[in-house]
Design a protein around this nucleic acid. Structure first.
Lengths: 318, 318
DNA sequence: CACACTTACGATATTCGTAAGGATT
DNA sequence: AATCCTTACGAATATCGTAAGTGTG
């Protein structure tokens, strides 16, 4: 016993039309096709569903009993596959991103707006968290993917660089360091310093570099918002170091910046995904748009100048 | 897009086993069959359900999302057809009979017991009502079939005789009428009469016959229970007329009966069904057992002596 | 004869199993 | 080398449409 969808469709159509002729028209099939489909169905369920009156078909008590069930089965079937289709065609779904604050407020919003314009029914969720939390969220499947620096000790995760940022020193206009084309890290020791809070990945990198070259910082204070750093530096309280991407965000008068060298520390930013765990169709599309955006803004607007560009594609799961 | 049951079964089996090999074993199919079924399903729904790792299969987010739905669809499918199968194999169902009191208490109980023994899960309902109500219940689909005399003005109903009863005069032992082999109707006028209530079909027939032959009855009283008629006659209060089948039910000492003639009025009892409205599988089986029972009791036990036997079968709906 | 369903039969489409071909461990 | 999945291809099965058959009004 193995009835098919088509047989059930035939049954419902005939039951509703009380006629093979009408039913066959509605299903775009020939009359004999329906006749045989019904016959086979009846054979498989072990009894007559219709009484044949040589002139017309009537439901048997069993057929009448079964009809609502049959209609529900077909409707459920249709709904389920429609729903799945909607998921794949990105008319439904949810994407959760975990990104460093820099990227979350810099690179991502434009892409999200673009994505939402194309796929308005996809629910988007963006978490701007610190690097460790980005890693954790991706690992624990609380985010579809992450945007951050390369994670440490992460065999289960995959990192795909999309762009290299670098650190710049941020000074008020007229500051002596601005006389230089490039500023060596050790010169930072000479001036009061406004620091980002110690949990941020860029601050951790700053501390690491200073330790390596044996220098130290004259930290005036630590603040948590990048915008605050900008205002304090503009007010002449001191200098600071920021990733160039972050600097672009604080469009404030009275500030300028110079790249830091000796050593030149690239800050490689990229996509964190789970190994052996495919992205949803929607997430993959969003990721592709994100990479396209990096590419475009670099090529056409030059706004990511001095950032190396990676063109290696997202790991595809096809 | 037209996914099949088998494709969905393949999907669920593979999702649960995370392996084509295991799934193919569970479904008693070859590995390539499953592989292709999955491939076709993915093509039809417009996206990958599994990520192929060359070593093992893992659900994509869409696949994971769809799995519970798929399992529910299959379960519902299975349940629905199991249920329909139970209906046809008479492991489930309901039969409602409307029968004249005579038949309900005489012929039917033994058959019902037999039927229930064979099909204990079928719900049986027996209504012993008067002839008009039998007709009404069948017509209004409140009963699957009726057991009664032939209905009047019933183009929508079908009557299939199963046995002919006849009327007998019931007398106390030693009564003068018992001296005759057969008693003419007109002789009923000579003695006090115990009548059945006027709504019963047998009483209506009695009144009709008496009117036709221009006789009258000396009615001592009307009672509603046949057993009461028996006791009153046995007590010597009068005589009565009953269908022979009813007489058989009152096994009371001190009574005897003789067939009534001039005219010989057969009382043709049979099955009432709706035209153009098939019986359920269970009802048809019960009806067949009923007819078999009439046949058997006539042939082997002779207990329906003097009743003509109809062997014409139940109208079959096959 | 017209109408509606069923049966017959050849054509098409789908599904299946065996055999062969990767890819990974 | 062993395991697992995929592809290739011929065979079996199921489904379909045209044409012919049956029964009723």
């Amino acid at each position: 016993m193995n009835p098919s969808i088509k047989q059930l469709q035939a049954f419902v159509a005939v039951a509703q039309a009380s006629s093979l002729a009408q039913a066959s028209e509605r299903l775009h099939l020939s009359q004999p096709a329906i006749s045989i489909a019904l016959k086979n169905l009846e054979e498989q369920v072990g009894g007559k569903l219709f009484s044949r009156d040589a002139r017309q078909l009537n439901l048997t008590p069993e057929g009448r009993d079964f009809l609502p069930t049959a209609m529900r089965l077909l409707q459920d079937w249709q709904d389920a596959f429609d729903d799945l289709g909607a998921l794949f065609s990105k008319q439904r779904g949810k994407v959760t991103i975990a990104a460093l604050p820099t990227l979350a407020s810099g690179l991502v919003p434009g892409v999200i707006a673009d994505f939402h314009h194309h796929y308005p029914r996809i629910n988007l969720s963006l978490h701007d968290v610190l690097a460790d939390q980005v890693t954790a969220m991706v690992r624990e499947e609380r985010a579809d993917f992450g945007l951050s620096v390369a994670p440490n000790h992460a065999e289960d995760l995959e990192f795909t660089p999309i762009l290299d940022d670098h650190n710049v020193v941020v000074c008020p206009l007229g500051h002596p360091l601005l006389a230089l084309e490039q500023v060596p890290w050790r010169r930072l020791s000479d001036y009061p310093f406004i620091g980002i809070h110690r949990q941020s990945s860029s601050r951790q990198q700053i501390d690491q570099v200073m330790a390596e070259i044996g220098g130290s910082l004259d930290i005036l204070c630590d603040v948590s918002q990048i915008a605050t750093v900008g205002r304090m530096v503009a007010a002449g309280l001191g200098i600071s170091v920021l990733p160039s991407l972050s600097f672009r965000q604080i469009s404030l008068e009275g500030l300028d910046h110079r790249p830091l060298v000796e050593p030149l520390i690239p800050r490689r930013l990229g996509i964190i995904t789970r190994r052996r765990s495919p992205l949803s169709s929607a997430a993959r599309t969003l990721l592709e748009m994100l990479q396209g955006s990096v590419h475009q803004s670099s090529v056409h607007q030059g706004s990511l100048h001095q950032s190396s560009l990676y063109q290696s594609p997202v790991p595809r799961s096809e």
